[in-house]
Computed example of a mutant assay.
Amino acid sequence: MPGKGRENGYEFGLFLTSCTTTPASKSETVLTKAWLGNDSTYFVIKSWRSKVGKAEIVKWARYLSGVKVCDSRIEGRKCP
């Protein structure tokens, strides 16, 4: 699941991080997808502030696999 690659001409990374103690809650798990775009770096984040199971993480990783960065200025990277 976590990894890196290229989508729609942009480099991306998918990261899963956990912290057992945070100021806001007892624990937090964060699934982040980040892209290096032409103008900016883009992030989509799903966060859980409770215990999360593998099935829920897999469900959201699949969802994030469908989230892409597009650019209407570049042929082949147009937005839907």
Rank of each mutant, 00 (worst) to 15 (best):
G9C: 06
K46E: 11
G66S: 11
A24L: 12
T22C: 13
R73Y: 15
C79N: 10
V44Q: 13
D71G: 01
F12V: 02
R77C: 08
L64C: 09
K68V: 07
R73S: 15
G3P: 05
E56W: 07
G53W: 06
S65E: 14
F43L: 15
T21L: 12
R77L: 09
A34M: 14
V69T: 02
R49P: 04
K68C: 01
R6N: 11
D71Q: 01
L14R: 08
L64K: 03
G66Q: 08
E28Y: 02
C70K: 01
W60K: 01
S25Y: 04
R6L: 11
S25G: 12
E28G: 01
E7C: 01
S18L: 05
R73W: 14
C70N: 05
D71S: 04
T32D: 11
P80G: 12
N8C: 07
K59P: 00
R73E: 14
K54Y: 02
C19H: 07
C70M: 06
S72P: 03
P2T: 11
K68G: 01
K78F: 11
T41M: 15
A24E: 15
N8W: 03
G13H: 01
R49L: 07
D39E: 11
K46P: 05
G3S: 09
A61V: 08
Y42F: 10
A55M: 09
K78M: 11
S47W: 02
S27Q: 15
K68R: 13
W35S: 04
K33Y: 04
I57Y: 00
S25D: 12
K54S: 07
R6W: 07
G53P: 05
A55W: 03
A24K: 12
R62Q: 14
A55Y: 04
T32Y: 06
Y63H: 12
P23N: 10
T21A: 13
